[in-house]
Amino acid sequence: MSPAKIWISYYTMLRKEFVRMVRIWSQTLLPPVVTTGLYFIVFGSFIGSQLQAIHGFSYMQFIVPGLIMMSVITSSYMNTVSTFYFAKWQRNLDEVLVSPTPDWVVIAGYVSGGVMRGLLVGTLVLIVSLFFTHLIIYNIAVLLCAVVLTSVMFSLAGLVNGIFAKGFDGISIVPTFVLTPLTYLGGIFYSIDQFPPFWRAVSLFNPILYIVNAFRYGFLGFSDVSIATSFTLLIGITLVLAVTALVLFKRGTGFKN
């Protein structure tokens, strides 16, 4: 396919996903906004007002970056895992598979759909947070790189999950039993400096901790871990997932006989 045609095919996938996302906004965009809004009220306002400042920031200011990141992670992942699995289940995935669109473009299309949803939801959550606290931005470049890389990474992870999934339970097992616990224990609600040494060490094995901290650094200018480590991890995992997705597509795992 010529580059111009590849672009048209990619744009087709993106447009289709955008239209779908907006058409069913009450399922795609609203729920994370409501959930995080509740977190802001309960943890930020009610409980947070009784907590001491962390690194000189109010508890509300501390949790905003983590809660944005949580919604970006969940929305990106859920978008690709569900759209890909649904296309596979309903077999309309065949529409793109019989076309000359190369595998990497199909992957890019699905991942971009997840990124689109993740960033849109993240922005909405950020806007909601402004009702509770004012915006502080320490380093916009770090912030943007962290959020874009994160949504790419989790969109890819969702796609890989969708490729392997054999039933509707297969698309909810990982989010429920892996993603949610890692996210809640990923330093959104606390600084690991507050932890005893043992739990501090355990937390360092959680990749989401690094992601949340890199993002929080972009807002507040401090992090529990080194930013360089965070970005190395983000880029490393993203590359591994991208190669995995390409190999699975080439083999047709889960969708070709």
Binding site: I8, Y11, T12, K16, T101
Partner: peptide, 14 residues
């Protein structure tokens, strides 16, 4: 939409 999306996969503009 089903038709135009299929066309898009072949590189035909909407």
């Amino acid at each position: 939409d089903i038709i135009t999306v299929q066309a898009g996969y072949y590189g035909i503009p909407r």
